[in-house]
Amino acid sequence: MTNPPVPRPFPHQHAGHCESGTVSALLRDRGLTLGEPMWFGIGSGLFFLHTGLVRVGGLPLTAYRVAPLAIVRNATRRLGIRMRYERFRDGETAARRLDELLSQGVAVGLQTCVYWLPYFPSTMRFQFNGHNVVAFARDASGYWLSDTVFEDVVCCPPDALARARFARGAFAPRGLLYYPESIPADPDIEGAVRSGIRATCRQMLDIPMLPVGVRGVRALGRRIAQWPARLGADRARAQVAQVVRMQEEIGTGGAGFRFLFAAFLAQAADHIGLSGLRDLSKEMTAIGDEWRQFALVGAHICKGTRPDADAYRELAALLAALARREEALFRELRAMA
């Protein structure tokens, strides 16, 4: 298949995560160049949550990140960028407004549902409403999107995009589009980095009562060893598979955003001249490697290539160790910011 020519140049960059990638591309197009890891860190994207109270396809929700759109909102606010968010009642008005902005040369962020985007591999299409892309042009072949999960820009047929923008259910996008209205000439990057770091530490350490953040990792570690006995082998396996998918499959830059956060710490060290952050970046990388080990053992469980009792015990031990290491890291990080 030969692709039609792209109607206008767009500074597309391959990214680990859709939301930090989208906001990074959107602002790069407007002259503010800041790498994806910086957006992820400033937007305090890192989190951990595992709860049976919310279910995805009948399985407990696992999230390694904050709620959809929180990264865009927090990062732009901390950098002093004023954003405009528009939602719509119906698809026609939404499409008209999008066309209007594109014809003025304004690239916009869109919230979409992955399931209806035809350029996704069929194995990765599932009902998830929090996927972000940039639309930057429209021509006879369709809408031109910078979907940062992929290496190159893509062209999407209008009816598919309309469906993706108006899918219903949890986090329904209701046609959401967003774009920067004003960008400070000289944003306070150091202030934004520090406040992003403090917020990340709060999310990971301080949220009371609920088993989230570091305590969420620890709580999952305590419970996971009991899954086979409590839920039966099949159900336990399905839940392990789901945790690992959320960690690796859905665009996290690897290890449930831990490598992306490590990259942020390293880049932040240069931006604000705080060399201690570089050591913490190394530790975060080592922690990410352990999360990969967790995924590997999870895959063995799904394939049945290791005795269950043994493998679940290792999962529990890995999570306990991860909780300990992450807690120490965030305490040290807080002391620096």
């Binding site: 391959h14 392990v240 999870g298």
Partner: peptide
């Protein structure tokens, strides 16, 4: 897909990955 990894000098860079066996296993399971 984009993965973050360290180069020889320890700096983080984006490395395109064709995928990971672990992903395939858990995805197929689901």
């Amino acid at each position: 897909r984009a993965c973050y990894a360290e180069d020889d000098r320890g700096a983080y860079v984006v490395v395109p990955s064709r995928g990971w066996e672990v992903e395939r296993i858990v995805n197929e399971h689901a």
